[in-house]
């Protein structure tokens, strides 16, 4: 009897006290939030931090990294002000452990995204990833991320193309890097580079799909060049005769063409009334920028 009573009371006490403690803990957690991240940044000198971590920089970097990813990766609708903490946090993290690839990559995404999904600071993202490349020149992922940052956020297609091209020659690189380099060269208007890159890809790549894709790119560029040339011929014809040609035969008779011109896939081009050039099967030349029928849209998105 007399032992049973304290036992029951004590069991109840453990349960009740612990439950109440948990309720308070919940409140404490809720109140802390970004304070943790802010606190992490009080010591903003990585050199000082390295010294204080007594050689465990890697561990410290992991802790910083975990905090960044937990805090910025798991919640939504952060305020811009809170996102201002992200770059310094990632910067310290990666200075403590410059090989922490995942931190650069995380930063590439979340720094560049517009609020509320990210910080809306693409320049910072580019800077972070550039630092990453400096310390990890052999990791193609960083080139991949930087390329897209340049292309999508800075609209620097030529720069992006160069970045992808640099990444494409690394060991263990991803085959799409070459494709991307060429794509963005095309998009940036640097046709000759694009051609070169596509040809390299076509010759060197092992992946049949990528090779097909490269071929389509090559043929599309060739077609675009052909169409440009044809349009020049037509405008010369117009200048000389004062009217547009009705068919390619007009041009052949005028000695300006040798016969009906064929596109790189072997299909003849069509000459529309008014002197416009159009390809017969735009789907076989999906990357053309000229001569597509009005309203035609490319069906397949190019590889990433």
């Amino acid at each position: 009897m007399s032992t049973a009573r304290p036992t029951v009371t004590l069991t109840l006490a453990v349960g009740i006290l612990f439950s109440c403690a948990l309720i308070l803990l919940h409140n404490i957690d809720a109140r802390r939030g970004s304070a943790i991240i802010r606190e992490s940044l009080y010591i903003s000198s990585p050199a000082a931090l390295k010294r204080m971590s007594l050689g465990y920089n890697g561990l410290l970097a992991d802790i910083y990294w975990t905090r960044a990813v937990q805090y910025f990766g798991s919640h939504h609708a952060r305020s811009a002000e809170e996102y201002d903490l992200l770059y310094p946090l990632l910067d310290i993290t990666t200075q403590l452990d410059p090989k922490l690839i995942v931190a650069y990559r995380f930063g590439a995404t979340f720094l560049a995204e517009r609020p509320p999904m990210g910080a809306g600071q693409p320049e910072k993202a580019v800077q972070l990833v550039r630092n990453g490349i400096q310390h990890n020149p052999d990791d193609w992922h960083l080139y991949y991320d930087l390329g897209f940052l340049q292309a999508w956020n800075l609209h620097d297609y030529v720069g992006a193309s160069r970045t992808f091209a640099n990444g494409a020659v690394l060991p263990h690189t991803n085959p799409v890097m070459g494709v991307l380099a060429a794509s963005y060269a095309t998009k940036g208007g640097d046709i000759s580079t694009a051609m070169l890159l596509w040809q390299t890809t076509y010759q060197n790549n092992q992946n049949e799909m990528i090779r097909q894709n490269a071929l389509q790119h090559i043929q599309s560029i060739q077609s675009d060049e052909a169409v440009t040339e044809l349009e020049e011929v037509i405008s010369r014809y117009e200048e000389q005769t004062g009217h547009a040609p009705e068919s390619f035969l007009n041009l052949v008779y005028a000695g300006m063409l040798k016969g009906t011109p064929l596109d790189p896939t072997g299909q003849p081009y069509e000459l529309l009334p008014g002197g416009k050039i159009q390809v017969q099967d735009p789907d076989s030349l999906p990357f053309i920028t000229k001569g597509a029928p009005p309203g035609w849209k490319r069906k397949t998105v190019p590889l990433p």
Binding site: L10, A13, V14, L17, C20, A21
Partner: peptide, 17 residues
Amino acid sequence: LLYSGAMVAAAALIFQR
């Protein structure tokens, strides 16, 4: 206070038996 109270009560519970 609550957390340590719970721990001490648990210790007492074990000690009791």
